[in-house]
């Protein structure tokens, strides 16, 4: 669990794809919020699936953004 997701509140449309893929990482009410860490593969899949491209992923060890 070295990948940290962040939801951009201005970009999120509240579609809910992220929470469907990673229910322990995201919760979606009006918009998505990150509720906790999760498996790297789930975090990446959720970020890639976001139709609004509102999820950024950072490598916690290097602090660098991860290309999706």
């Amino acid at each position: 669990m070295t990948l940290l997701p962040r939801v951009d509140e201005f970009s999120c449309c509240g579609h809910g794809d992220c929470a469907a893929i990673a229910p322990n990482v995201f919760r979606v009410d009006e918009i998505a919020v990150v509720t906790g860490p999760g498996p790297d593969d789930q975090v990446l899949e959720a970020a890639r699936a976001c139709p609004a491209m509102a999820i950024e992923v950072t490598d916690a060890e290097t602090g660098e953004p991860v290309d999706l």
Binding site: H15, D17, R48, P51, M53, D67
Partner: peptide, 26 residues
Amino acid sequence: EPAARLGAAAARSILGLPVAPAPPES
């Protein structure tokens, strides 16, 4: 969705970054 995606893709292309394939559009 495609407008958002292409806007970001344009920026990534300018910066020489890869562009991820799009999920099915809604």
